[in-house]
C-alpha cells in the first residue's frame, strides 16, 4: 500500500489485544478508540488459550496510519501484553452486501 492510501483510505481492521486480567482495562482500551474518534464496530472479550491471559477482539474502520498508532498506544498500557491489527477479511462485508441486495430486491 502506498503512503497516500495509508493516510486517507479507510479499511476495516480486526484488532486483537492480549492482556493481564485487570479491572478497568476494557474501558481504558475503549478510551483509546474514543480519543481518536474511532468507532468500535464489534467487541468481544474472553479468556485466551494462554492461562491468565485475556483476549480482546475488536473490529473498527479507519486508515492504516491511524490504526497503527492506535495499536501502539494500546500496547503502551502497562497491563497490555501484545496488540495486533489485521486488515479485516472482507468476506463478512461482502456477505452483508449480498444480503442487503437480496432484501432490497424483495421489498420492491
Amino acid at each position: 500500500m502506498n503512503l497516500l492510501n495509508m493516510e486517507t483510505e479507510e479499511l476495516y481492521y480486526e484488532v486483537t489485544v492480549y492482556t493481564e486480567n485487570q479491572v478497568g482495562l476494557l474501558s481504558s482500551i475503549a478510551g483509546i478508540f474514543t480519543r481518536r474518534s474511532l468507532n468500535i464496530d464489534k467487541l468481544v472479550v474472553f479468556p485466551s488459550e494462554i492461562p491468565g491471559v485475556h483476549k480482546f477482539s475488536i473490529r473498527t474502520h479507519t486508515t492504516e496510519e491511524k490504526m497503527k498508532q492506535t495499536v501502539l498506544q494500546i500496547e503502551k498500557k502497562v497491563d497490555v501484553i501484545k496488540a495486533f491489527y489485521y486488515e479485516h477479511p472482507n468476506n463478512t462485508q461482502k456477505e452483508y452486501e449480498a444480503v442487503r441486495k437480496f432484501l432490497q430486491g424483495h421489498e420492491k
Partner: peptide, 14 residues
C-alpha cells in the same frame, strides 16, 4: 477515580 484517571495516568490501580 480509576475511571477518571486511567486515560491520563501511566497506571491506575485500586
Amino acid at each position: 477515580f480509576i475511571g477518571l484517571t486511567s486515560p491520563i495516568s501511566k497506571w491506575a490501580y485500586q
